[in-house]
Amino acid sequence: MRGKSIARFFIGLILFLFSLIFAFPFYYVFVLATWPGSRVLEFPPHLFFGQGLKENFNILFSRVPYLTNFMNSLGIAVVSTVTAIFFCTMAGFAFAKYQFKFKKQLYQFVIATLAIPGFLNIVPFYKMMVAFGWMNTWLPLVVPGMAGAFGIFLMTQFMENSLPEEILEAGRIDGLTEFGLLMKIAFPLAKPGMAILGIITFIGSWNSFTSAMIFLPNVKKTTLPVALSMLNSRVDNNMGALMLGTALSLVPLIIVFIAFSKQIIAGLTAGAVKS
C-alpha cells in the first residue's frame, strides 16, 4: 500500500512538471506582452505582468497593419472552413453510404494522398499560381484544400456510424433526389462531425505560414503568422509589440481549443488512432 502511494506521488509530480513545461511558454508570452519594448529583455527576466500593454498596442498597430492581417487570417480561415465542410461532407457521404464501383480503391487513393510530402509539388504549384494570376489573392490558400483528404476521411468515418440507412431509404421513398438526400438528411445529421472538421480546418488555416508567405507576400494582404514573422525579422523590431502581437494571435486559438479540446484531439488523431 505504501509503495503504491509513493508511486502515485511521483507519477503525479512528473505529470505536473511536464504540464508546467508545456504551459509555461504560453504564460510567458502573455507576461512579456505587458512589458514595454525597451524592458522586455531585462535581467533577470520577467515572470510577472508589467505595465506596458497600452504602449505595446500602439506600437504594434503602427508597425504592421495588425487588424487587417487579423481579418485576412479570419477571412481565409472562414472560407476554407465553410468550403471544406461542404465538399468533405459530400464526399464522406458518398464513401460512407453508397455502393459503387471502385469505391474501395478510390477511398484508398484519397487516404494515400495524405502521405505525399507537401514540398513535392511546391515549385510547379508556385509557377501555376503566377500563371493563373492568383498571387496576392486568397485562392492558393483556399482552393486546393477545399476537398481535403483528411476531411473526407473524417466525415466518412463519422457518417458510417451516425447515418442510419433507413432514414435514407425513407427519404428516397418520399421522392427526394440524391442531392436532396445530401442537403436535407446528410448535412443536418452530420452536424457534430462537421463541427469537429470545421474547428480543425479553422485551426489549420489560422496557423498556416508557408503558403501564406509564398503567395501573400504583400504585408497588407497577408495573414497574421506572416505579419508576425515580418515583425520578428525587422532590425528595429520592438520586442513588446512583437510579444503582444504573438499573444493576441494565440487568444482565439486557446479559447477554441480549451472549449472543445476533447473533440479536437479526437478528430485530429482519428486517423492515427484508427489504424
Binding site: L15, F18, S19, F22, A23, P25, F26, Y28, V29, L32, V40, L41, I203, W206, N207, F209, P225, V226, L228, S229, N232, M239, L242, M243, T246, S249, L250, L253, I254, F257, I258, S261, I264, I265, L268
Partner: peptide, 23 residues
C-alpha cells in the same frame, strides 16, 4: 493532462518560435 500536453501541437509555429527565441 491531455489538453495541456496537446496545446503546443495546435499552436502556430511562428508563435512558438518567437516565444522560444526569447527563452
Amino acid at each position: 493532462f491531455k489538453t495541456t500536453y496537446f496545446l503546443p501541437y495546435v499552436t502556430s509555429t511562428v508563435a512558438v518560435v518567437i516565444i522560444f527565441s526569447n527563452l
